[in-house]
Design a protein around this nucleic acid. Sequence first.
DNA 1: TTAATTCACTTGCAAAACGCAAGTGAATTT
DNA 2: AAATTCACTTGCGTTTTGCAAGTGAATTAA
Lengths: 148, 148
Amino acid sequence: MRFASELKIIFMSKDKNRSNCPISCSLELWGDKWSLLIIRDLMLAKQCTYGDFLKSEEKISTNILAARLKTLEQHMVIEKLEHPNSKSKVLYKLTKKGIELLPILVEINLWGEKYYADIPDKTKALLKDVKKDKKSFIRRTIKKLDID
Amino acid sequence: MRFASELKIIFMSKDKNRSNCPISCSLELWGDKWSLLIIRDLMLAKQCTYGDFLKSEEKISTNILAARLKTLEQHMVIEKLEHPNSKSKVLYKLTKKGIELLPILVEINLWGEKYYADIPDKTKALLKDVKKDKKSFIRRTIKKLDID
DNA sequence: TTAATTCACTTGCAAAACGCAAGTGAATTT
DNA sequence: AAATTCACTTGCGTTTTGCAAGTGAATTAA
């Protein structure tokens, strides 16, 4: 099935967009309940293994995780790296395109903080930092993520 | 069924969240391929009828639209108004909570503009304005949406 | 050196969500 | 009075999700 499924990607590359609206196009790629959580994990941890994602609080199921990782990789939002000291482990990290989703995640975080209760202390602390100087927070975080 | 379905909202209010992460909670509410397009339409048009949403380029199907409008209303992101000169029409508009999604939509728009081609001229013009002064754009747009 | 464990996935299957087309009843227009 | 518009609802086939169990390669433990 390897070859067949790769052909599928090349020739049937998920037909036409609904529209050229950048919001609509973006949602077609990562507009679901899981993709941005994967991105979030990578923003916080810089690099994650498959198992790391599974350990996250929201308990994504393994088949969904595999599917999301595949399409995010196909669309170059994330990339795979080989683990420095293990052939059986795989490292995932954000590409530049993925890192640039940070401002979106920041705004979602701020909105969510305003309308949901019992925000974890760790998140609160982070958002306090964000609110002190949003631009600087984003610049600093991107810098951290950018270095290999 | 009116009363029964309202009881359902009160007593069976869609059990537990996956986590208290504000991103995760936000995605549970509007993390799908359609909700933010409804919000987008309301940001641009200020008020929409049911039919207006159906006319949007992305062609949401009517049952999905009805479902999304219901949950967005239940969570007080949008509200219904009676149409000034027709009993058969319904007007939808954003609440304060909904209006405050604007920064998220702006960032999605900017990201999407960067990574997708053939962005409509109207959107390009809007984003040019955004990039000139993001804060001012958001302030002005919120002001416009706020006035009844 | 072999057996157990870990790792990144895949597979099967039931349940839920989606997408399309057609239908409904009240309000409005012709 | 009849036709049309309006905001939905309903039915139904297809797709996606979520859960549990399985797979094979790599690593660790015995």
